[in-house]
Amino acid sequence: MNSFGFEIQKDNTIEYDKNDLSLAAFVLRHEPSLYNCIQCGSCSGTCPASAISSYQFRKMQLLMRRGETKHLREDVAHCMLCGKCILVCPRGVNTRNVIRQIRIALNMN
C-alpha cells in the first residue's frame, strides 16, 4: 500500500443540498415542537448522559436537521429517557418524543 505520510483532511462542510433531509422531516412531522428549539442548550446542560458521555441532544437534533445523520443511530442510543430535558426546555419542546421519533425513523430506515 502506498503511504503518503498524510491523510486527506476530511471536509467538514455541511453539504446541505446533497444531504438527505427526509429523516428530519419525519421527526419534525411527528413532533413539530422541535421547530421551536432556540439552541439554548438547557437540555444538554442538564442531561445526566451528556455529563458522562459524548451524547448531546441539542447538537444531535441540530445536525439531524441539517441532514448530518451519520452518527445519529449511535448518538440517540445514549439517551436514558430520564426526562430532565423536558422539564427545563424554555420552548416546550417535547424532547422525549423527539428521541422516540428518531428511534422509530431509524428502525424504519
Binding site: C40, G41, S42, C43, S44, G45, T46, S50, A51, Q56, R58, V88, P90
Partner: peptide, 18 residues
Amino acid sequence: RLSESSENPDGSLLLKAD
C-alpha cells in the same frame, strides 16, 4: 442557558450549562 446549579460545601456554586 444555565441548566441547573448546585451548592458546594464552601457555599460556592456549581453551574451546569451547555
